[in-house]
């Protein structure tokens, strides 16, 4: 049992070294690849923010156009009221 435990612990130590080594190597390679990719395609590529922004602007203008109509209607009514009560 003692021997067995020693062997298991040795294997665990082995796994710790190999495992952490591979995790670090894998992710370090990924860091370099991301940097490489970003320098290749990242610069003049369109950012995803642009297409999202467009519908927002549209909706805003739609809203403000409606707002203008409401404002116009209210001011016309106020004007009428004042005219009537002069």
């Amino acid at each position: 049992m003692e021997n067995n435990l020693g062997a298991l612990l040795f294997e665990a130590a082995n796994l710790l070294l190999i495992g952490m080594g591979v995790v670090f190597i894998f992710l370090t390679i990924l860091i370099f690849l991301i940097k490489l990719m970003s320098s290749l395609v990242g610069k003049n590529a369109p950012t995803p923010a642009a297409p999202v922004a467009t519908p927002n602007i549209n909706r805003n203008t739609g809203k403000s156009a409606q707002d203008k109509k409401v404002v116009a209607a209210i001011s016309a009514a106020v004007h009428q009221y004042r005219q009537d009560n002069k």
């Binding site: 990924l30 991301i34 990719m37 990242g42 590529a45 995803p48």
Partner: peptide, 14 residues
């Protein structure tokens, strides 16, 4: 900001 092209290539690279 990160471009869409980078975001598409990333999973393929991984």
């Amino acid at each position: 900001p990160v471009s869409q092209r980078e975001k598409i290539i990333f999973p393929l690279m991984v």
